[in-house]
């Protein structure tokens, strides 16, 4: 009896996950009391010392806490206690805004660079220098000039997602098959119409690859940026829970960051498939 590859892979995945949970559970479970110690001292140390309970929460603790969060994702008990849904919402909104601004700048500019060798050569040194700068290095400058931490975070997202899109758009536009351009030329298609009917569809898969790389980077950077600017967002949540020494919440946040990142990537992967046509 043979099952499809997909089915077998799913079985292996589930087994691996179960094994991971099992080891995690065993490694963090409570053992019996560690030994005799004075009750005063035991009171000070808490269950970590008295019952051999690890400071690291086990899968059951995390699961229980996660369920709490899932049940109440949008509660708001003041600036330091907001539901995970709200925090994620802030992060996604910042990424969305910064990313959208980056799309609006990078794609037209990338088109220009791809179509004009002059502009390409002229802008190349700037891009080469600006591209490797860590987006967080812009933060102080952004905070000083913009004077608003939330907008500064959006600016940091903008600056980190602009480069992959810009370079991919320029590359995609510059490497459109010569014969497609020649088709448009022999049909006397004007520059604007050519850009939209030949170059854009031909470069779309490459542009979307750039957009996919960018959203990944933006989601990486938002966590760090929010740790810096504070206030709201999933990055702030992680740092706040670290200050609260709630490792359970930190683990939940890590998990959610991964899941949201995956979803963002999948959405763009799907878009990329929609514009890719085999020859």
């Amino acid at each position: 009896m043979t099952f499809s590859l997909r089915f077998r892979a799913a079985i292996v995945s589930i087994v691996l996950f179960a094994a991971f949970l099992g080891i995690w559970h065993i490694a963090t479970r409570s053992t019996s009391a560690v030994g005799n110690m004075s009750p005063e001292y035991a009171k000070l140390m808490g269950i970590t010392a008295t019952q051999g309970k690890s400071a690291m929460p086990g899968p059951l603790d995390v699961g229980a806490k996660l369920w709490e969060h899932v049940k109440r994702p949008f509660y708001d008990n003041g600036p330091n206690d907001k539901g995970l849904g709200i925090q994620l919402g802030y992060s996604i909104a910042r990424v969305g805004l910064g990313y959208l601004l980056a799309v609006l700048v990078a794609i037209p500019l990338g088109f220009l660079i791809g179509m004009s060798p002059l502009i390409s050569k002229a802008l190349d040194p700037f891009i080469q220098v600006l591209k490797p700068i860590s987006p967080l290095a812009w933060m102080p400058l952004a905070l000083y000039t913009i004077k608003d931490s939330s907008i500064s975070a959006i600016f940091v997202i903008f600056i980190c997602s602009v480069w992959p899109m810009l370079l991919n758009t320029a590359f995609g536009v510059a490497s459109v098959r010569k014969e497609w351009i020649n088709v448009a030329r022999t049909l006397e298609v004007g520059t604007i119409r050519r850009a939209f009917t030949v170059i854009l569809p031909a470069a779309a898969p490459t542009i979307l690859t750039g957009m996919r790389i960018s959203i990944g980077i933006a989601w990486l950077v938002i966590v760090a940026a929010e740790m810096l600017v504070g206030g709201t967002g999933i990055g702030y949540f992680v740092w706040n829970e670290w200050n609260n020494l709630s490792i359970t919440n930190v683990i939940i946040a890590i998990l959610l960051i991964g899941i949201v990142g995956m979803l963002l990537d999948q959405v763009l992967a799907r878009c990329a498939r929609m514009v890719t046509f085999p020859e």
Partner: peptide, 19 residues
């Protein structure tokens, strides 16, 4: 002078737009 719709080209590699 340049290309023209009076002169149509059939390309060696057909050059169809795949989309």
């Amino acid at each position: 002078e340049g290309t023209s719709l009076d002169r149509a080209v059939i390309f060696q590699s057909h050059a169809l737009l795949p989309w």
